[in-house]
Design a protein around this nucleic acid. Structure first.
Length: 101
DNA sequence: GAGTCATTCGTTG
DNA sequence: CAACGAATGACTC
């Protein structure tokens, strides 16, 4: 079980309609490698079980989903979040503090 | 073996 | 108040 595997396990526990942050995940597994968390998301060996789109920055920003990485397909994830009940406004999570797992 | 990456915190100007 | 650099862990070349 590697560090990233733990990330998937914790992220997997996040209920639908809620979001979490890289920092929160890293702290939950007992590490401060926030960046490593993003790495795990980038790999995303678990497609639907580990919703990387449910993970956002500490500021509530979606992070590397928009404007970075591939570019367009990312926006589809935003719509998926909205469909789940997570509103994304200006690339940020609405009521992020309330939805933070 | 070295470099990269979807972040966050701490210090300096 | 704003900007830059450092740290962390796995993956790829």
């Amino acid at each position: 079980m590697t560090f990233e595997e733990k990330i998937y396990e914790v992220l997997r526990k996040v209920p639908r309609g809620k979001v979490t942050t890289y920092k929160n995940l890293a702290e939950k597994i007992g590490s401060k490698a926030y960046r490593a968390v993003g790495q795990a998301m980038r790999n995303n060996p678990f497609a639907p079980e580990v919703p990387c789109h449910r993970v956002v920055r500490s500021d509530g920003r979606v992070g590397g989903f928009m404007g970075k990485t591939t570019g367009k397909e990312i926006q589809k994830k935003i719509e998926m979040l909205t469909s789940e009940g997570v509103e994304i406004i200006d690339g940020k999570v609405a009521d992020f503090s309330l939805r933070c797992f």
